Simulated assay, not measured.
Amino acid sequence: MRIGVLGAARIAPTALVRPARVVDGVEVAAVAARDRGRAEAFAAKHGVATVHGSYAELVADPSLDAVYVPLPNGKHAEWTLAALEAGRHVLCEKPFTANAAQAREVAAAAGDRVVMEAFHYRYHPVAARMAEIVHSGELGEIRRVETAMCFPLPLFSDIRYDFGLAGGSLMDAGCYAVHCLRLLSPGEPAVRSATARTLSRDRRVDRAMTAEFDLPGGATGQVRASMWSTTVFRIRARVLGERGTMTVTNFAAPQVFGRLVVTVDGHRRRERVAGEGTYTRQLRAFAAAVGGADTNLTPPADSVATMSLIDDIYTAAGLPLRP
């Protein structure tokens, strides 16, 4: 599989270039950036053979099988659609699009091409094990699911705070927490309330968000997202059942200081779930899906559900949907 990169993004080496070196049959074959000089520097550093003069030129390259889209949030739908129109498969960084309407548009355009949202954590065995523990009934009837993705980003000029590029803590950090809440809930969550802490210079942009949910069966849920708040760092999933609890530290990248602890009927155990890094497993799953395997765990239908919930959170918080 020959894949091209749209944009010399900081995440690209970690998410794609280095994993491609160990995943058989995958070649990062081309790159394009707004600044050709940046693309050339990226290509030279990472051994990419072809530099294209524009995004449009890259997606039209007939030698490519797939396109990786790590552009700012507000550009995801535009260039995923362009790649699909050109007949390419797409690995698109999270969040899938700026809003649910765009997600539905991409889903309708996908056809028989593989479109995978890059929630890389979902491809690690820890994600499957979390879901297995919760949905097996081991914890008893689920009463509450809490997920959090909080980290510090005090540089408020960063594009992740740009409303016009679909920025905000819920989009950048919180989309992981929303997706994980959906994975561990007994059914699709419904937003009950949401509270945002916004930037002083742009009240449309959340630097932190807390949302409460009603879950099927009478359970409740909570999502916490932050790029700047009193909660400096927290990446965690916690599920409370009538018989016990499950707590997962760093569910987003469990290969780095990850921990899964289960307490049932007073008995506590810690589980170690081995596996390659999340990005390597994600790329392997993407390549297999392009080859016809049923390995896409984050297809457009899943993305539509996640983006719909994000829209509902913004609405409940009294903020506009991302453009």
Results as ranks from 00 to 15, higher is better:
residue 229 S to Q: 12
residue 172 D to G: 09
residue 161 Y to E: 00
residue 64 L to W: 13
residue 65 D to T: 15
residue 50 T to Y: 07
residue 225 A to W: 02
residue 242 E to V: 12
residue 2 R to A: 06
residue 169 S to M: 09
residue 73 N to V: 15
residue 62 P to W: 09
residue 78 E to M: 09
residue 129 R to V: 03
residue 180 C to R: 14
residue 149 M to Q: 15
residue 303 S to R: 00
residue 252 A to Y: 13
residue 303 S to H: 03
residue 110 A to W: 00
residue 28 V to T: 13
residue 214 D to Q: 06
residue 123 Y to I: 01
residue 161 Y to H: 13
residue 89 H to L: 04
residue 45 K to Y: 09
residue 190 A to N: 12
residue 223 V to H: 04
residue 133 I to A: 01
residue 256 V to I: 14
residue 83 A to Q: 06
residue 245 T to Y: 10
residue 3 I to C: 09
residue 175 C to Y: 09
residue 277 G to D: 15
residue 261 V to W: 12
residue 201 R to H: 10
residue 103 A to H: 04
residue 148 A to K: 08
residue 22 V to S: 15
residue 147 T to F: 11
residue 269 R to D: 14
residue 248 V to H: 11
residue 15 A to P: 04
residue 174 G to E: 01
residue 17 V to Y: 12
residue 137 G to V: 05
residue 304 V to D: 04
residue 88 R to H: 13
residue 179 H to G: 10
residue 241 G to S: 05
residue 145 V to D: 00
residue 39 A to T: 05
residue 155 L to E: 15
residue 66 A to M: 08
residue 168 G to K: 00
residue 190 A to I: 13
residue 51 V to W: 03
residue 115 V to L: 02
residue 69 V to I: 13
residue 95 P to M: 05
residue 137 G to H: 02
residue 187 G to K: 09
residue 217 G to W: 03
residue 7 G to P: 08
residue 66 A to L: 06
residue 25 G to N: 03
residue 168 G to I: 04
residue 116 M to Q: 00
